[in-house]
Design a protein around this nucleic acid. Structure first.
Lengths: 151, 151
DNA sequence: CTGCAAGTTCAAGTCGACTTGAGGTCAAGG
DNA sequence: CCTTGACCTCAAGTCGACTTGAACTTGCAG
């Protein structure tokens, strides 16, 4: 496969060109050269981006991800770290399950007011105790932009 | 129970005073009056805050939460909306579970490089397809501040 | 009566991950 | 050869949820 220019990478991964530049700046990906001014990417960048996407989904920050890559050239991912993240994820999952249960119940609860529902009050107590997940901050409105063709 | 001043509310809920002012400004809570300059809160604010906390954990924005309260005076929570959130949560949970599986496997995978592991590659593919959760943005470092006494 | 800790207001700053805008460059098609 | 549109750089802006700082005011312990 030929080298890819930025718009091809964007099209094939669904990652905006601006984001790709940003990632390069952060050391998450690398362009293999330029044609004139324009970046050229090796096709392997696609895999790399998948890895980034995976890392993000797993709750790693861009910086953490960059460090995994930075360790040495080849994506050297610390297995212990993975296990730790998996455990964290497990915690989160448990909490979310409890929460979902609570919500479902609240949604169909016959009590006149939620406040009269013991189940809801229990959930409330849990929330007050901080036993529920912290709730992702600063999540901007997804403006449902074009999700480009999947290659 | 007597009316509470802001630091009492903060102490009993673990919500910073600055946050309480912020919440009041946003219409999420209301102070019942002032002693001099100082806000006084009715004890019911504690329950209200638990509700806010619950809403946040469930993935509602402050604005959405405010609207639930705004509908009329008494916390009028739309059951359909709850159900919707519960479903979203369900989606998220499924994805997180897949992810956790993937991470766990990757953590113990015997393949020399993760790239040589079919299971890992499958996960990667899923990530590339956007089948994984979007990963909460803008989450600032929790600096492990004092979690004050639970009343 | 006085001092001061604890409250107040309002504007501005922070955090992470990007996006947007202005202004510039250049490879390729007509 | 010349246009043009895809790319480029760099600075600044955005989003949500708060926090922080500066400059005041005040209830109340001593």
């Amino acid at each position: 496969m030929r080298d890819l220019d930025i718009s091809e990478v964007a099209a094939r991964t669904g990652v905006a060109a601006s984001t790709l530049r940003f990632y390069e700046e952060k050391g998450l990906i690398a362009s293999i050269g330029r044609r004139g001014l324009k970046r050229l990417f090796d096709p392997s960048v696609l895999e790399r981006l998948a890895l980034v996407s995976l890392g993000r989904a797993a709750g790693f920050s861009l910086e953490e991800i960059a460090q995994m890559f930075a360790a040495d050239g080849r994506a050297k991912i610390d297995r212990d770290l993975l296990a730790v993240k998996a455990d964290e994820l497990e915690q989160t999952i448990r909490r979310l399950i409890a929460l979902r249960q609570g919500l479902r119940h609240a949604a169909i609860c016959p009590a006149r007011s939620h406040m009269e529902c013991p189940s809801f009050r229990r959930l409330l107590r849990a929330a007050a105790d901080g036993a529920l997940p912290p709730a992702a901050n600063g999540v901007a409105k997804k403006k449902a932009k074009k999700r480009p063709k999947r290659a």
